[in-house]
Amino acid sequence: MEITFYGVRGTVAVPGPETNEFGGNTPCVHIRTKKEYNIIIDAGTGICGLSRKLLATPLGKGQGEISILLSHTHLDHIQGFPFFIPVFIPGNRIQVYGSHPEESDLKTILDGQLQASFSPIYGMSNFAATLDIKELDAQPLSIDGTTVTHSMMPHRGIKSTAYRIEEDGKALVYMSDVEHEGGHAGENAVQFAQSAQILIHDTHFTAEDYAKSRGSGHSSIETAIELAKRANVRQLVMFHYSPDYSDDVIREIYRRYNDQSGLTLIPAQEGLKLIL
């Protein structure tokens, strides 16, 4: 599979020269499977840029199908969805997957951001594409030759969904928006990430800032490194950067931990492509 990053920033989109290198768009990761099927993880503002690229595929002609996996419904992970052009092209089939949220159901929450007070779309029923919203159950998903499993992670009062996508015996794990209890991953998270070729993990904070922000629902770079090591993961992707961190800060974090971590640390960057 081919993994491309379109949004790597946490919380709120941050335009400006200070974010040009790593990017200011909120989370969106694109996966193209071996059979050229498109899977998207999260629909932050990064999906707007991806959207334009996908218009060159059958999705541009209303003949495409795509699966979107949502980690959770905080706005930085769904705010790009109403601007994802393929939803306005009749004939497309858009599958959206996510866990059942505690306070409501997935469809109601996604519809909530499109209601009259907030959007001229007035609800997902006005999308022209066929939309299929599925809440995950315990069964693994099978998406065009890949197997997708999930696990629930603590994220300040709610749960976020971590995904493990396997193709040809290789695994990618996406674990964003998580604050493990006490800042250390539990056994279930370690098991879930076990021996994945690539782990994309929430590294919202430096260790110092995390110490001041416990309870915010996000992780420090050190938590992520510790988890990667315990799970025998060799490649760790830094992800969901704090909106307060400029490119200089992110580069500094990378430099500081790359050598000492003993694993391959990859700072997520808009446009970065990884092959698995």
Partner: peptide, 17 residues
């Protein structure tokens, strides 16, 4: 900026917020 924020090198001058 209208509709949604647009970070990136092509909005550095006029702004993406």
């Amino acid at each position: 900026r209208g509709s949604y924020p647009v970070p990136g090198i092509s909005t550095n001058k006029y702004g993406g917020n």
